[in-house]
């Protein structure tokens, strides 16, 4: 085990994959000489050289598409999209090209590419640089989508993503880049497999990315015994682990850092409701952001993503009542 920051765990995963497999190449804006704006490719150019490590122009459509083509020809490109919003200009290449390549080649071509992007709110970057946007990908068959919650999962998921034979989108919570954690290098995650952060008996909480940490704080402050499932992969999500846990606890809350409408948590709540209807002790529900853009102002942004206080309030509600609680903006009656 080595103590490292999340961004260093990413560097370590990239370097370990590049050492292990010559077909891994990386490119993106200011990732080579400047070593990434979030320093997630420190030392990579130096060790692996300019043939495999490249700076790109500001041409996301071009270089993401080039990764698709290079992947078809047998390379394993890893592209960095500085902020996930920038993938907007390249979405065709991801959801309509990469995700359909295997299908349209009658199974003869694969696209073993990885798209890394920073995501999430909390740092005052404003509404065009703070979204998580996993729902852009979550209903695209052919893509896999993962999100780490700490240094270990950042390392292990990235290695798994690079090794995966299909296109994988890795959404990295930007707010965690500087966080430290113990990392066992060499440990590779299984895509589609959730990880248990805590185990307990009263309630199941499913969360993703930084919300796992928020949920853990909330569980502690609410003083409850909970299964905290760090989902890690959104598609394909780990039905088995989630269903087994809710079967045991009879209660489910999903915590998401994304707008209420259209979130991945709906899929989980729907599945659990349908499959475990008779074993539920209270209504499964989601804790999300309101349906608003991410506000810049610090006080407002602090209310945007679910907070541990609010998650704790809703956990207590779930344990004492059978109906779902209202979100904070309804409880507080904020004029809308």
């Amino acid at each position: 085990m080595t103590a490292m920051r999340v961004r260093q765990a990413i560097v370590a995963a990239l370097a370990d994959e590049m050492r292990a497999d010559e077909s891994v190449i990386i490119f993106g804006e200011d990732i080579a000489e400047a070593e990434g704006v979030f320093k997630t490719s420190e030392g990579i150019l130096e060790e692996f050289g300019p043939l495999r490590v490249r700076d790109t122009p500001i041409s996301e459509m071009g270089f993401t598409g080039a990764a698709v083509g290079a992947a078809m020809m047998g390379l394993k490109p890893v592209v960095e999209i500085m902020f996930i919003e920038f993938l907007g200009v390249a979405l065709d290449q991801v959801v309509t090209e990469a995700a359909k390549t295997r299908y349209l080649s009658h199974g003869t071509l694969s696209v073993p590419m990885t798209i890394r992007a920073s995501a999430g709110s909390g740092l005052g970057f404003g509404c065009q640089h703070s979204q998580t946007l996993e729902h852009w990908f979550a209903s695209t068959p052919g893509l896999k989508v993962v999100m780490p919650s700490d240094a270990q999962s950042a390392y292990s998921l990235l290695r798994a993503a690079i090794q995966d034979p299909d296109p994988v989108v890795v959404l990295e919570p930007r707010i965690l880049y500087a966080e430290r954690g113990e990392v066992e290098t060499g440990k590779i995650a299984e895509i589609g497999k959730a990880s248990m952060r805590t185990t307990g008996s009263d309630i199941t909480i499913v969360a993703l990315g930084h919300m796992v940490n928020i949920a853990q704080d909330a569980i502690q402050s609410a003083g409850v015994s909970a299964d905290l499932i760090d989902l890690q992969t959104i598609i394909p999500w780990d039905r088995e682990t989630v269903l087994a846990s809710v079967k045991k606890t009879g209660r489910l809350i999903v915590v998401e850092e994304a707008p209420l409408s259209g979130g991945w948590g709906s899929e989980i709540v729907a599945t659990v409701s349908a499959q475990l209807f008779s074993s539920l002790k209270s209504a499964p529900f989601r804790i999300t952001t309101p349906d608003v853009p991410v506000p810049f102002n610090g006080g407002l942004e602090a209310r945007y993503a679910p907070t541990s206080d609010d998650v704790a309030r809703q956990i207590k509600h779930a344990l004492s009542q059978s109906g779902a609680p209202e979100p904070w903006w309804v409880v507080e009656g904020v004029p809308r």
Partner: peptide
């Protein structure tokens, strides 16, 4: 003054 909480829900 800081914006009111309602500013977060306005102009969408």
């Amino acid at each position: 003054p800081e914006p009111e909480l309602s500013a977060m829900f306005s102009n969408i």
